[in-house]
Computed example of a mutant assay.
Amino acid sequence: MTPAPWAPLSGATHAVALEVLRRGPLSRSELARRLGLSAGSLTRLAKPLLDSGLLVESGSTGHASRAGRPTRPLDVVADAHHFIGAKVTHEDAHAVLTTLRAEVVASARADLPGRDPASVVAVLRGLAAELGAEPAPRSRHITAAGVSLGGSVADHATVTAAPFLEWKDDVPLGALLSDALGVPTAVDNDLLALTRAEHWFGAARGHDRFAVLTVGAGIGYGLVTHDRVVDSPDAGVGLLGHFPLDPLGPLCPRGHRGCATAMLSTASLCAAASVGLRRDVGY
Rank of each mutant, 00 (worst) to 15 (best):
G62V: 12
V16C: 00
P250E: 02
S152M: 15
A175Q: 12
A133C: 08
G206Q: 00
L251A: 07
A78M: 03
S274K: 00
L26T: 15
H156Y: 06
A217M: 11
P137S: 14
S60P: 04
L239N: 06
L248W: 13
A106L: 08
S152Y: 04
R115H: 05
A271I: 11
L45T: 10
H199D: 02
A162S: 14
A144W: 02
P48N: 13
R28F: 13
D231I: 07
A203D: 08
D51E: 15
A32V: 07
R138D: 13
F83A: 03
A260F: 10
A211K: 01
D51C: 01
R205F: 00
I84H: 08
P250S: 04
L9S: 10
M263K: 09
V212R: 15
P184A: 01
R23S: 15
R22H: 12
N189E: 01
K168T: 14
T71W: 05
T195R: 03
E19R: 14
T2I: 15
A64L: 06
S152A: 05
A136T: 05
V20S: 11
H82W: 05
A128R: 06
E91H: 05
D208E: 14
V230E: 07
V123A: 11
H207K: 14
V229M: 05
G85W: 07
A64I: 09
D51P: 08
S107E: 14
D169R: 13
V20L: 08
T261H: 06
R228N: 02
G11N: 12
V16T: 11
D190I: 06
C270V: 14
D234M: 14
V147W: 05
R205S: 11
L264H: 14
S148R: 05
L181W: 09
A136C: 09
L131D: 15
A102D: 04
E103Y: 03
V88W: 11
G241E: 08
V88L: 06
L223D: 01
A193E: 02
A86L: 11
V159F: 05
A17N: 06
A128Y: 01
R209D: 15
A235I: 08
R28W: 09
E130R: 12
N189L: 10
L191M: 12
V224D: 12
P247C: 10
L49Y: 09
S27M: 13
R66C: 04
A262K: 04
A122P: 03
G36L: 09
A4L: 13
G146C: 04
A267L: 08
L149R: 07
L100E: 00
V104K: 03
N189K: 07
P117G: 09
Y221K: 12
P247F: 07
V88D: 15
S139K: 14
H63P: 00
L248T: 13
S107R: 15
V56N: 03
P172W: 11
T195N: 05
R22C: 07
E198M: 07
G282A: 13
V88E: 09
T225F: 07
